[in-house]
Design a protein around this nucleic acid. Structure first.
Lengths: 213, 213
DNA sequence: TGAGAACATGAGCAATCCTCACATTTGCAA
DNA sequence: TTGCAAATGTGAGGATTGCTCATGTTCTCA
């Protein structure tokens, strides 16, 4: 009823937090909720995560959960956003100063290793990410993030090949980026050894595309 | 309690059909159920599909649904399997006689176009596929299918480069194949024009990898 | 033709997300 | 300090939905 919160598109979307915690007390409680959710997701996956369980583990009532998160998806997304923000900072730092082919090769390879390592080590990220794949609204948000990340790559490519068609560079960068995410996701869902091979193979495939066009 | 059905792995898995329809009558009814499910998925997505709705649309009782499908996932998977089988036949035919680089180029490009077209035209495939992405058990089955498909590509590569390391060829083929699926999935989730560009870009990226190693 | 297997039914069980009416705490102006 | 509005907290219960099971019907085949 009250449209005070931002309502951009008429589409089904991730509802904004019903209320943002303004007092110290509630800010701490929201932290506890997210921590509980994260732990439960790590144990059993976001799908099996029960809101009641989250509330119990966080030491709050079920009602408090819904005070700050409009629904379950929003909680999962809140966690995803955290990692997203961290990632973005990391990516920006790694690609900011790349200005030649060799630099790109190194930065890209390193970035992929970090990403792969993160997914291997953090079941929460893995689960949250695969959760977003199935949900239309979440996937759209994820795509937007990915596009933003790809922009850093576009900037590098424009520096390396100033007279190439910008649209083509955008397409290439976005594709390479998305394929990188897909490759990592694939890699963590097979045996470790094969996963390593796949990531290595992807690196060479992507770099070939990025450098030798 | 009764383990008469095939139980291969101790893992959580897709339960086998509780009972396969042996009489004409029930075979027709199962067809109706799948058709209803397919229609509903096309309309609203598999997540929003209600088993009660499927039963109603198929003109059967809810109990009959569960007579032949142990649970909702199994219904979705049954649909996925159909397309899977069709695909496999198509892929096998397209790659069977490829024996040179030019042939691979053509066959691969054609295959990707078909795949892309299929996803564009069939909302059921799209939805079922994204559904399988989130579900561990379904994803494992999907991966197995994908691996089988990649084998056709491996065979071609072995013909083209007989003295390359077989493990490397396997890795390359599997990666290229999976990236192809990911690329198509990406392409259908953006504007048509960008999707076309992405598919084209993927073709060139993949072929570069397949041919020029 | 009759017995048993296959098939069909749908009320209702159980699990789970989320709401809402009401209680408590906090910030702050008078 | 006091009083009050806003922020925060609570948990029983509404609503939805996947799935079961006791019971009835139809088919097959000796």
């Amino acid at each position: 009823m009250d449209d005070t919160a931002a309502s951009a598109s008429p589409q089904e979307q991730i509802a904004a937090p019903r209320r943002s915690p303004s007092q110290q007390r509630s800010r701490e409680r929201v932290e506890r909720m997210l921590a509980a959710a994260s732990a439960l997701i790590a144990e059993q996956g976001s799908d099996a995560m029960r809101m009641g369980e989250v509330a119990e583990k966080a030491g709050v009532s079920i009602g408090s959960l819904y005070q700050f998160f409009p629904d379950k998806r929003a909680m999962v997304w809140a966690l995803a956003e955290r990692y997203s923000a961290e990632s973005q900072a990391c990516i920006s730092a790694a690609l900011k100063d790349v200005s030649d082919a060799e630099g790109l090769k190194q930065a890209f390879s390193e970035l992929l290793d970090i990403y792969y390592g993160l997914f291997l080590a953090e079941p929460v990220i893995r689960d949250v990410w695969s959760g977003t794949q199935a949900d239309k609204a979440l996937r759209a948000l994820e795509l937007a993030d990915s596009r933003a990340n790809a922009e850093f790559l576009v900037a590098v490519l424009k520096r390396l090949r100033p007279d190439a068609d910008p649209v083509e560079l955008e397409t290439t960068a976005f594709l390479v980026w998305q394929m990188g995410e897909a490759a990592v996701r694939l890699a963590i869902s097979v045996e470790r050894e094969e996963g390593d091979r796949l990531v290595a193979a992807y690196k060479s495939m992507a770099l070939r595309e990025l450098l030798a066009e």
